[in-house]
Design a protein around this nucleic acid. Structure first.
Lengths: 120, 120
DNA sequence: CTTTCATTTGAACAATTGTTCATATGTTGA
DNA sequence: TCAACATATGAACAATTGTTCAAATGAAAG
């Protein structure tokens, strides 16, 4: 199925050219999918609270659970997602596992988002 | 229910102090909720593709639909979400409605996210 | 080895979400 | 006013997701 088979407004040359330009600038599907998946991870209150709790220092799982007033299981499930997306890293120290933000992108993405939310 | 009633690892003074510090630095629940809602909007392939399509210029709904090879209805539903979150703005010109990115935060949030996805 | 504590994991359930289809609204030109 | 086009909206359905509960793994201390 071609791009131009689908129903859309009258298609003078201008539109064709514009469509081709837009499509040529779109990142490939894999990158777009990964990017959406990344933001999906930020898009949950629990995970955002975890990331904020870890903003300035590392914390072990049970302290995270205590700080956020949630069960240790729920926190652990979310930490797994955060780690899979490389937003946090972990290190084991005896019985405890400490989590911390993975890198500065996490800080700056959250900062930018917060700016947007707080503006107006 | 107090913060310290829930089950967690042994609680020497260090932990109590840390928990209080972490909690005092957490933004209030409303801001956290709004932030998660914001990222939730970025967290969908279709909406990310729309945002990328609008990265450099405004487009009308049907050109967006054509460029992304989706139905006009699906695009329109997503545009409503994007507009509610103030990620895009719209202007009507005759029968057509043109959408564009709302401000530079959108550009920079996407840029940061893409950097994170592409790194390694 | 056994117990205890911290964390992880799997299954299940309720809740949320994206698309489709049908229909409504709004704008232009005849 | 009417027909044609562009967009928006509501209901419904399938699919995804976050939490809970129960049980498993892993580490340290006795």
């Amino acid at each position: 199925m071609s791009i131009f088979d689908i129903e859309h407004c009258d298609v003078p040359e201008v539109h064709k050219d514009l469509l081709l330009k837009v499509q040529s600038r779109l990142p490939d599907e894999d990158a777009l999918y990964d990017l959406a998946e990344l933001f999906k991870v930020f898009g949950d209150s629990t995970r955002i609270r975890i990331l904020f709790a870890l903003f300035d220092q590392e914390l072990c799982v049970c302290d995270l659970a205590a700080a956020l007033n949630m069960t240790q299981s729920a926190i652990s499930h979310q930490l797994r997602l955060l780690k899979q997306s490389r937003l946090v890293r972990s290190r084991r120290d005896g019985k405890q596992v400490f989590y911390a933000l993975a890198d500065d992108h996490v800080h700056s993405i959250i900062d930018q988002g917060m700016e947007h939310v707080l503006e107006d």
